[in-house]
Design a protein around this nucleic acid. Structure first.
Length: 498
RNA sequence: CGGGGUAUGGCCCAGUUGGUAGGGCGUCUGGUUUGGGACCAGAAGAUCGUGAGUUCGAGUCUCGCUACCCCGACCA
């Protein structure tokens, strides 16, 4: 472990490639965010990791409410028949789900604990939700009668289970936490506005809170959510130049309304199928956060999302010094007025060096050191997590400097990630060059594509990269498909992905 | 479901041609330390994944079983 650390200390984050996956897991371990459970593919989110999720929830929840949504909760268990109602939903879905077949345990006759009671078989199996469209829309069908019932703007914070073949902490686990918004509207235009509006909420959140720049765009037809009319997404470039789909928003059209009979009487007394959207982000965002900013020392958190913004390390030898330092710390703490977002590490049995390291691993944006020398000079030492820059600050100035540094760090992390993405994005017009980039260091390759999945498949077969999205911010520009040479109206992004 | 690997204290691992289990980390106790991952002394902690076999004797050899990890297939 230490050998590994020493090794990775030598290499800069931007030059690392093969080790990236291990580095990612190391950061999670260093920051003490999560670990694998004994249950295959499941994750234990530890308190510090969960605190990050809680902060994300807090910000997002506020934004959802500001855009008119309310929270509700729908059941975990879905009747199997519900997953057969919407044809393309059924077809497109992976069938890897957790299925409840029985409802009772009995004592095992051989005395070895409990066993499933074979007599307690369910008439209809229940599926642990892999996503909640079906169970929610069945409910909506009873809620919607008139145009006056619309729109329905509801969000749910929940867990879902997908029996993934292969899992990675935060990025893909069997069970994960997320929010899923499910809305119902009178018209196609309203639903379209909603889907795009919520994508914009995600973009704003990713960039201004997570400092994680994203590309907004539309998924190609063959990569849509099963049953959706359009799937929009935000894509973020990680430090290994692979892309992470960080959130999605679907315009579902009337597909689910038709399958679940969500019908309303409009102003002209005519029956209409409703228009719907669904949108979600998950604990995967934590994975994105880690892979966007962290370095070889551990996690780096943008101040806006950090559970602890400032950590204060007292330094002393004697009891008198301790008392003196402590007194000053309490003054500073009151002055900074950061509530629970400030932590003072009073642990007596650990050296300052150990504490510096530990809080760096956890990605706390600012560290304040106070020892007798500082008290004598009426100053403190302030260290920034992202740059490592150390400065001496007069106690009287600390509050304003902390405020400025937190703002600056937030901006600087975003700018750094934006620069990285810019440096690794390429406009490419010939196939060989595209393959060369994707087979090499990787990155976002903007190329023309005719719309035929076969052309994408060819690239995928060769370099395991695919179309991430049809970006919104891309001028219409006629060209020729980089694979087959047929006509194309605009560029798409090819990249490797998580 | 294919291909490869692993299973030894809470964690990481060593254990030679078979001879009755060892180190590091962590934990606990006491002391000295504390401005970049402290040190010393002592202590606790293992039916060596599981079942059978070979043997005077198995962590070690043979066979079966199980679990986990890595590479693919999956990934709304």
């Amino acid at each position: 472990m230490n050998e590994q650390n020493n090794k990775t200390k030598q290499t800069g984050i931007t030059t690392r490639k093969a080790d990236f996956s291990q580095w990612y897991l190391d950061v999670i371990e260093k920051a003490d965010l999560a670990e694998h459970s004994v249950v295959k593919g499941c994750m234990v989110i530890k308190p510090y990791g969960y605190a990050i999720w809680e902060n994300m929830q807090k910000v997002l929840d506020k934004k959802f409410k500001e855009t008119g949504h309310k929270n509700a909760y729908f059941p975990l268990l879905i009747p199997k028949s519900f997953l057969s109602k919407e044809a393309s939903h059924v077809k497109g879905f992976a069938k890897e789900c957790a299925i409840v077949t029985h409802y009772r345990l009995i004592d095992n006759p051989d005395g070895s604990g409990v066993m499933v009671d074979p007599k307690a078989k369910l008439e209809e199996e229940l599926i642990i939700r892999p996503t909640s469209e079906t169970i929610i829309y069945d409910t909506y069908s009873r809620w919607v009668q008139s145009y006056r019932d619309l729109p329905i703007l509801i969000n749910q914070w929940a867990n879902v289970v997908r029996w993934e073949m292969r899992t990675r902490l935060f990025l893909r686990t069997t069970e994960f936490l997320w929010q899923e918004g499910h809305t119902v509207h009178e018209t196609e235009a309203e639903a379209e506005i909603e889907a795009r509006k919520m994508l914009e909420v995600y973009r704003d959140f990713s960039e201004n809170y997570l400092a994680m720049p994203v590309i907004t765009g539309r998924k190609p037809e063959h990569d849509k959510f099963p049953g959706a009319l359009h799937t929009y997404c935000i894509e973020a470039m990680m430090q290994d130049r692979k892309s992470l789909q960080a959130g999605t928003s679907h315009h579902l059209g009337q597909n689910f309304a038709k399958a679940f009979n969500i019908v309303f009487t409009d102003k002209n007394s005519e029956k209409q199928f409703a228009w719907q959207t669904s949108w979600g982000v998950s604990t995967r965002l934590i994975g994105g956060l880690i892979m966007t900013h962290s370095d070889d020392k551990g996690l780096v958190l943008p101040p806006e999302i950090a559970p602890i913004k400032v950590v204060i390390i007292p330094i002393y030898k004697t009891d008198e010094e301790k008392e003196l330092v402590q007194k000053n710390i309490e003054n500073i703490k009151a002055d900074l007025d950061l509530g629970l977002e400030i932590e003072v590490d009073y642990r007596d049995n650990l050296s300052p060096g150990f504490k510096f390291n530990e809080w760096e691993k956890k990605g706390v944006p600012l560290r304040v050191e106070i020892g007798p020398k500082d008290v004598a000079n009426n100053q403190v030492v302030l260290v920034r997590r992202d740059s490592g820059v150390k400065q001496f600050i007069l106690m009287a100035d600390l509050k304003s400097v902390v405020k400025t540094e937190l703002l600056d760090m937030q901006k600087s992390l975003l700018a750094k990630a934006q620069d990285f993405r810019k440096d690794n994005s390429f406009v490419v017009d010939n196939y060989e060059e595209l393959i060369k980039i994707l087979a090499g260091d990787g990155g976002y390759v903007y190329s023309h594509w005719c719309g035929d999945p076969a052309c994408e498949d060819k690239i995928n077969a060769e370099v395991k990269a695919a179309i991430r999205c049809l970006p919104f911010e891309q001028k219409d520009e006629a060209g020729e498909c980089v694979v087959c040479g047929k006509k194309s109206e605009r560029r798409v992004i090819f990249a490797k992905a998580y």
